[in-house]
Amino acid sequence: MRFGVAASVLFHACAFGLAFVSLPEFLRTKVIETEVIPIELIAEAELAERTSVPAASPKPKPKVEKPPDPPKPEKAEPKPAPKVEPEPEPEPLPEPEIKKPEPKQEPVKPKPKPVEKPKPKPADLDLDALSALIDKSRKDPAASEVDSETDLEAETARSAIGAGDRLTATEIDKMRAAVSRCWNASAIIGAPEPEKLVVEIDLDLNRDGSLNGQPRVVNALEISLSGNRFWKVAEQNAVRAVSLCAPYDFFEPARYQEWKAFTLNFDPSQMAGF
């Protein structure tokens, strides 16, 4: 009996002792060790270099450059518009085109330099450089179409690696500011429920920043079916803004693939409160 009591007392004493030592450990807030992730400040210049990397590879350009001549046929598209005889507009259009191709040829100059570099590099550089050489050895001028296609493919393949929004915030801001400046909304904001008069427009650009074809209103069907005459006016205003602002010549030609096509969403909702 005495042994039983003593054993019990001893057992309880041990249990209390253990609790006394270990409980505080349970109650203490655990400190989670976090990994320290270093943050590196990227200099503006360096950032600019990085963002322009994909398009910077000069080799594709020389090839694409000569294709730029093909774009002329693209621009020739606007010529059909000129068909309307009385309008001399077509003439002014072609002129800027002719002028701009020249500036494009200037960039060609930097390219020859890269072309020189590839020569020493052949060992390092592989397919692109080789294919460039091979292509040239085969058919220089005539192969331009094929070249441009393969180059574009290569370019898209490269750019696809880091896809997402490839325009920089600054470039997007420039575009937004330009269009906002040309978008006259004085008639819309006094209309009833102006926040509903959203217009979405697809536009394609040529390398010189001019419009490639007429802007297309994405929700044109919805607008005409609505029978809302204010919406129709909003549509006209948005199309006018896009045409009025052209050419969008503030983009870097080397990054044409990134800015050749836009969808602009004209949304007056934030101006509804006047």
């Binding site: 929004d165 490839r166 325009l167 997007i172 575009m175 937004r176 269009v179 906002s180 400046r181 040309c182 978008w183 006259n184 909304a185 004085s186 819309i188 803004a241 990134e258 800015w259 096509a261 836009f262 969808t263 602009l264 969403n265 004209f266 949304d267 007056p268 909702s269 934030q270 101006m271």
Partner: peptide, 9 residues
């Protein structure tokens, strides 16, 4: 590239 135009003159 999609851009929202929310400001106008």
């Amino acid at each position: 590239v999609r851009i929202d135009i929310t400001q106008a003159n």
